[in-house]
Every structure is written in C-alpha cells, then in structure tokens.
C-alpha cells in the first residue's frame, strides 16, 4: 500500500509555546566575609655579637630568650654589639638591665660599661641608652623606653658596648678563668607588663 513507510501520514502537532520565559530570579549572593585572626605576641629578645676580627676570648650562654650572659676579659673592649627585638603591648615599654652574674672583682678594680646609642639600623622605637654605668651584682637599667622595634642582627647594629676597666692590673683574669671565676655580665630584657 505504502512504499515509503517512513512517510508521515498524519501529524499531531503539539507545540506548546509558553507565553512568558521561565527564567527564575537569578541567584545572587555575591559577597562573603573571610575572617582572619591576627596575633602579635609580645616579644623581648636579646642577643649580642662580638666583632670576630679581633682575637677576643668570649663566651655566652642563654638563660632564656630574654637574657644573655657574656664573659668579660680586659681586652673585650668595644667589640660587642647588643641586638634586640621587641614587641610591646599598647602603652607599655621594655627595658634592659645589666649585672655581674658570675665572678667577683678585687676591691680596687671596677668594671664600667658604656652603652652607645642605637646606630639606626632596623626599625621602630628603640630604647634610650643610659650612658655609662659601673657594673655590680645588682641589675641596673642600661637601655630604657624600648617600644616595638628591632635593631638588626650583627655587628654595627643595635647598641655598641664598651667595657672600661679601672685598675685592671689588679685583676688576674687568667687565674680567675681557670678557677671558674671569670667575670660574666648578664643582660636581661624585661617587659614592663
């Protein structure tokens, strides 16, 4: 009957036209917050370096990150540099003290230290040098009013320390060193919190 079987004989045409477009309201939530917790711990770190180009016998040990000890000999001279990093809480300042923590000096011998001003490397509110003091076994302020700052690390950074002996000939360093009585000075970085 029908040669072309695929011929469409009757088409039921159903075309549904929608009178309006079915776009739903666009999804928009185009902002987001990212919360970041920021911590800056208070720090008070102190260290010293000695100009190694000179043959100086020295030693130091950490009593803590905020305390260092240096063995002083008559030739230590001015080759020591005090470096520190400080972060303070709002409104507070730190300070550094020095005292003889080991060994003893003969009565006619005194040891002074001259604390230079910060040389200006690093950044921040570096402390104010007290000038020169005579060291004793009691801690004395040597740098005060330290805010958040860092001095940089190494020689020629921070505060230069110059040791000045009075009547050093009366002090037999070698003997005291062998007996474990070398003079040691401890620098302590203290927070005023």
């Amino acid at each position: 009957m029908f040669v072309y079987k695929k011929i469409v004989l009757l088409i039921s045409l159903v075309v549904l036209f929608f009178s309006f477009l079915t776009i739903v309201p666009a999804q928009n939530n185009n902002t987001a917050e990212m919360s970041i917790t920021l911590k800056i711990p208070a720090i008070a770190l102190i260290d010293f370096v000695v100009d190694g180009s000179q043959m100086i016998t020295y030693s130091y040990s950490y009593s803590g990150p905020n305390q260092v000890e240096q063995i002083i000999i008559p030739t230590t001279g001015d080759k020591t540099w005090l470096n520190y990093s400080s972060i303070v809480k709002s409104g507070l300042t730190n300070y550094i003290t020095a005292h003889i923590s080991s060994g003893s000096l003969p009565a006619d011998v005194s040891l002074n230290v001259l604390i230079g001003a910060d040389v200006g490397v690093g950044a921040g509110l570096k402390g104010t040098s007290i000038g020169q003091i005579t060291l004793s076994t009691f801690p004395q302020n040597i740098i005060t009013n330290i805010g958040s700052c860092h001095t940089g690390r190494g020689i020629n950074k921070g505060h230069q320390l110059t040791y000045i002996w009075e009547n050093p000939d009366s002090y037999n360093y070698s003997l005291n060193y062998e007996e474990g009585n070398a003079i040691a000075v401890t620098y302590t970085f203290t927070s005023t919190e």
Binding site: S12, T22, I23
Partner: peptide, 19 residues
C-alpha cells in the same frame, strides 16, 4: 498506529544555590 502526548508543559531550569 497513533501517537499523542498529554501536552504537559515541560520547563527545566539549571541552577544552584550553593556557592
């Protein structure tokens, strides 16, 4: 043979609500 549909309107939308 006869074929017919129920004329159901079919609308599909592609979307997400989760960033």
């Amino acid at each position: 043979c006869l074929i017919e549909t129920n004329y159901a309107p079919v609308a599909l939308t592609l979307i997400t609500s989760t960033a």
